[in-house]
């Protein structure tokens, strides 16, 4: 990917302005969207706290962070297909010489910016419940960044293959359940049988969550899962760029 970036003379200016266009303008003019992405993690935090009398609050906070990032990325299925099929913005960008990888970065980082208000709340809770200190917090940020890139790539791949906008929001919601509710975000991964855990590794949220649960909750890092997140962060964008439809 690095050689490709060099070859195409990567347009960071566009990526930065697209983050402003897609991320900042949504936060500024549509704060209700930010709240909507917070609704599920905060509800689960509430129920988990209530049911477990606070003993699994760590999982609710950690799962909430990963869930915000992944859900924001996956709901981009709707935005990407809407921009392409209905608004024709993608068409405009193709003929302006934008490369799909630049678009992918713009959407990913726009989503990350869009996730920030929710993330800040959960980071505050993380410090409040002493889930992480500064150094462990950096591991968390790294994983969230990787999950954002890989999940957005999945969203781009799916959205770019759709022929009708009408199916996009449904698919986005379905993907969100498959990739964030089934994986061990809100519960200890040790509850899962090994086969089930391995079969859920296709979701970037799974290895990220297992790695973070290991270092933040169990005090033991399993770098195998970090490597999987890194591999997925490289593989999913490559697959998305190979199989996604950029031109008509």
């Amino acid at each position: 990917m690095v050689s490709r970036l060099k070859r195409i003379n990567f347009n960071w200016k566009f990526v930065l302005v697209y983050i402003w266009f897609y991320g900042y303008s949504f936060i500024k003019r549509g704060p209700i969207y930010v709240l909507s992405y917070l609704a599920l993690p905060l509800s689960l935090l509430f129920f988990i706290y209530l049911i477990t009398k606070g003993s699994l609050i760590y999982f609710a906070v950690l799962g909430g962070m990963i869930s915000i990032v992944t859900n924001n990325a996956l709901t981009a299925v709707g935005d990407i297909s809407f921009f392409k099929l209905e608004l024709k913005i993608q068409e405009l960008l193709v003929s302006a010489g934008v490369y799909p990888i630049e678009y992918l970065f713009g959407i990913s980082l726009g989503n990350l910016l869009f996730s920030l208000p929710g993330l800040l709340l959960f980071i505050f809770l993380g410090f409040f419940y002493k889930i992480f200190g500064i150094s462990l917090f950096l591991w968390t940020l790294l994983n969230l960044f990787l999950v954002m890139i890989s999940s957005t790539s999945i969203a781009y791949l799916v959205a770019s293959r759709l022929n009708h906008v009408r199916s996009s929001w449904g698919i986005g919601a379905l993907l969100s359940v498959i990739l964030t509710m089934l994986p061990p975000l809100y519960y200890p991964y040790k509850l899962l049988p090994t086969a089930a855990l391995y079969s859920l590794l296709f979701s970037p949220a799974t290895p990220a969550s297992v790695f973070l649960q290991g270092i933040l909750i169990n005090g033991k890092a399993n770098f195998f899962y970090l490597i999987i997140v890194i591999i997925e962060t490289m593989a999913y964008p490559i697959i998305a760029l190979k199989l996604g439809r950029w031109e008509s």
């Binding site: 266009f21 303008s25 960008l93």
Partner: peptide, 15 residues
């Protein structure tokens, strides 16, 4: 949700 200025500036940086 985006303004005319954001649209045109985004397009120009794309170019």
């Amino acid at each position: 949700i985006a303004s005319p200025l954001e649209h045109v500036a985004m397009y120009l940086t794309a170019r």
